[in-house]
Design a binder for these strands. Structure first.
Lengths: 160, 160
DNA sequence: GTGGTGACGTTGAAATCTGAATAGAAAGGG
DNA sequence: CCCTTTCTATTCAGATTTCAACGTCACCAC
């Protein structure tokens, strides 16, 4: 029956979409200005740097980045050419492969991080008070949990 | 000096990024499932349908969609081929052109809208209480204003 | 073990997106 | 008027992304 949003929620939705798009564009531009990395590159480096052994399976990485498998293949190939990561075939499962952070990759991350974090602060975080931060965290962590659950449910053909 | 985010803001930032990415992907998938439109197509149709004369200048459209000029040119060409919009050269300014909504475009929008709005509700809005909606609206409208202002400032070489 | 089934990544072709360069037209002096 | 500058949108080449089809291997039941 209700196939629409009330006007407050519609305004909320629109502000969220437009501002997010604008923010991501801006961060991407900033990152390119003061490093040789894209936002995707940066994110890959962060995830690898935090992983045990500074390595992750392709599938795991794709899941966290919200990338399609083929997109990740391309992304890692690109970073491999630039020496930021290496590819190794997985010992336990010979179908799989893993991306490993290189010394150059870690260095690139260390150089880019201060600029990027400053960018995140000036464009977004500095303008939020603690209550707003708490609210956003609550909302988006809940959303993330739900969307991950939906995805897992739909990939499992445990229908019905 | 502070070139990092405190841990709460970092968690907030990460949840926001990941969940947003996931949400946009999900909405895109839903839209494709029950219509022939992409999210960008849909957004163009919405903006045109609300514009006086159901037409907008390319630049205006690009600004609102947060698209680069060349991306918009491509987007509109694609929609033109599918009959969703038409292109007309602008009477007042012969450099410019405008995109006009067609009957088929309006129809496509009307058919897709209920599904898309349901999708937005089930994946996001239904889970938010009124206070959260108010918080998000406040935050993202403020962010949007600031980012638009930054963009305008940097395009104007009125440097000091 | 053997065959079927599914999971993990990759590949190739086509669609889309970006950034620099460009054509065409308006605007503002001089 | 003429010239220079700026604005609008498009074009082109190249980079990225998607989608579907594969190749390889693991897993499970027989």
């Amino acid at each position: 029956m209700t196939e629409s949003l009330d006007s407050e929620r519609m305004a909320c939705w629109r502000a969220y979409i437009e501002s997010s798009q604008r923010l991501f564009t801006q961060l991407e531009d900033d990152l390119r200005t003061d490093s040789e990395l894209t936002f995707a590159d940066y994110h890959v480096l962060v995830l690898l740097s935090e992983a045990p052994g500074q390595r992750l399976r392709m599938g795991e990485l794709a899941g966290r980045l919200v990338f399609s498998p083929s997109r990740l293949t391309y992304q890692i190939s690109s970073m491999q050419k630039r020496g930021l990561v290496a590819r190794q075939s997985c010992p336990e499962d010979r179908r799989g492969s893993e991306a490993v952070l290189t010394a150059a990759g870690l260095l690139a991350l260390r150089e880019a991080a201060p600029h990027h974090l400053r960018s995140v602060r000036t464009h977004l975080m500095d303008d939020l008070d603690d209550a707003e931060v708490a609210c956003l965290t609550r909302v988006f962590e809940r959303l993330g949990r739900r969307l991950r659950a939906d995805r897992d449910a739909s990939s499992t053909p445990a229908d019905k």
